[in-house]
């Protein structure tokens, strides 16, 4: 008690005022470096990309580009490369369906059925992610190789013709996409399924729900946040991907990413590359927001 008797007595209002103003300023100081970084190196570049997409398509990197508000770049780019757009969305949509069919049981099993093996299974999902994804994608080249065991087996059972291949086909690209982004679907889904109280399923079955109905009416709605997050985390990078098409496919399987990559790094056609980038982003954003709106309303129902 004696130590406390010396607490200053006059530190009422005058001391409190500066404290308050300092704490009002503090959040802005904390936010400033990070927000500035994101503004300068994320938002500003997007503006620059928008500008570049309207440059005179006749310019070049060496002669310089003139800003001519060339909105024609967009229809021109779309006209030239619409099959690649279609392919990008088709491949990633098929991959998404496959990933859902594989990822939901996996996430559910880890969250609800694994018991004491839960951590082990989780590590089995996460740890491979630390190996470079390029190296892992190249491994599929070995697995799907014409001389490999898998192709041999499929040829023997006549699922593939004697000259049939897996590598350098749309199948290989979709398989690669599914593989590469599956963990991004599984982990958020796992996180929301783990929070699912298994007694709810017992209650559902007590109230005359078949396992299928219980899944449909209890599990699925409650895992919706994870499902939405996982779907987006899968779909966005898969649509913009060009690694799998490049490594596991041929130019016949090239997606829009391959075109953008070559526009910027090979053909050095910045206006076209920028226009294609923006079209890709616009398409993805449209799908994402449309999906979020729909998923959102369904969640309410």
């Amino acid at each position: 008690m004696t130590a406390l008797a010396h607490v200053p007595t006059s530190a009422g209002e005058p001391a409190a005022a500066p404290r308050r103003s300092r704490s009002r300023l503090l959040p802005y100081l904390l936010l400033l470096p990070g927000a500035a970084w994101l503004l300068i190196f994320f938002a500003l570049p997007l503006l620059q990309l928008a500008a570049a997409s309207l440059y005179d398509p006749g310019g070049s990197l060496s002669t310089g580009y003139a800003m001519t508000w060339a909105f024609d770049n967009y229809p021109a780019a779309l006209q030239a490369y619409w099959p690649h757009f279609v392919r990008s969305f088709a491949y990633s949509a098929i991959a998404l369906v496959l990933a859902l069919l594989m990822g939901y049981p996996l996430a559910y099993a880890i969250a609800q059925k694994a018991g004491r093996w839960k951590n082990l299974l989780l590590v089995a999902v996460v740890a491979p992610q630390f190996t470079s994804f390029l190296v892992r994608t190249l491994a599929w080249k070995t697995i799907l190789s014409d001389n490999g065991a898998l192709v041999g087996l499929l040829r023997d059972v006549h699922l593939l013709g004697p000259d049939g291949r897996l590598l350098a086909t749309p199948f290989a690209v979709v398989l690669g996409l599914t593989y590469n982004f599956l963990p991004f679907l599984v982990l958020p889904l796992y996180a929301s399924l783990e929070r699912l109280d298994s007694r709810l399923l017992e209650a559902a079955s007590d109230l005359y729900a078949s396992p299928l109905r219980a899944f449909q009416k209890v599990t699925l709605p409650l895992s919706m946040p994870g499902l939405i997050a996982g779907t987006l985390l899968f779909f966005i990078p898969a649509t913009g991907d060009y690694i799998n098409a490049e490594l596991l496919g041929t130019p016949n399987e090239y997606m829009i990413g391959n075109v953008i990559d070559s526009a910027f790094l090979v053909r050095l056609d910045y206006p076209q590359g920028a226009a294609l980038s923006f079209l890709l982003m616009a398409a993805i954003l449209a799908i994402v927001f449309g999906y979020l709106r729909k998923a959102g309303t369904e969640e309410v129902l």
Partner: peptide
Amino acid sequence: GINGLIFLPMATPELVMGTSLLALFVA
């Protein structure tokens, strides 16, 4: 606004972030 600034980079395809930064650095 801040939440948007943090969320958007995670929802933007890497390709778009890569090309836009390239456009900025070149410009």
